[in-house]
C-alpha cells in the first residue's frame, strides 16, 4: 500500500515536468534529403498503415516499385556522419527520435536494413 502511494506521488510530481519539457522541445531528429511521398501530417498519422499495406503487397504479391517503401524511408532519412550513414534506429535519429518520444517500439529493424544501400554499416 505504502509503496503504491509513493509511486503515485512520484508519477504526479514527474508528469508535469515531462509535459513541460515535451511542449518546449518535442522530438528532434536530422532533416531528410528530398521531398517526402506524402505531406508530413499524413505521414505522421498513417505511415505505419502505408508501410504495412505495401509490405504485404510486395512480400505476398510481388508488387515492386510502389511509393511507400521502407527502403525509401531509410534512404532519405538516414543522416550521414563522416561520410557514413547513421542507422535510422540509432538514438536521436529519424525513426528512433519519434518512437522513443511516443514510447512505441519499432519492430522493423530487427530484420530490415537501417542504412541506405546494400546493407547495414
Amino acid at each position: 500500500m505504502g509503496m503504491r502511494v509513493v509511486m503515485l506521488a512520484l508519477l504526479l510530481v514527474l508528469m508535469p515536468w515531462q509535459g513541460a519539457r515535451a511542449a518546449e522541445a518535442g522530438p528532434q531528429f536530422p532533416k531528410a534529403q528530398g521531398q517526402c511521398v506524402e505531406d508530413a501530417g499524413t505521414m505522421r498519422r498513417h505511415h505505419f498503415d502505408f508501410l504495412k499495406h505495401q509490405r504485404d503487397d510486395t512480400m505476398r504479391e510481388g508488387i515492386r516499385g510502389a511509393k511507400h517503401s521502407l527502403k525509401d524511408c531509410v534512404s532519405c532519412h538516414a543522416a550521414h556522419k563522416d561520410g557514413k550513414a547513421v542507422p535510422v534506429n540509432a538514438p536521436g535519429q529519424f525513426c528512433a527520435a519519434c518512437h522513443d518520444y511516443a514510447a512505441v517500439s519499432v519492430g522493423c529493424f530487427t530484420c530490415h536494413a537501417t542504412t541506405p544501400g546494400e546493407g547495414k554499416p
Binding site: G62, R64, K71, V74, T110, C111, A113, G119
Partner: peptide, 28 residues
Amino acid sequence: DQSNQKAHNPRGKGCVEGCTLCVHRIDA
C-alpha cells in the same frame, strides 16, 4: 540476433528463412 542484413533480404532472430530463389533479382 542478426546484423548487417542486406536491404533486399531482411532477416531477424526468431523467424524461419530459406532460399528465395533470389526473388529480388528475378523481379528486376
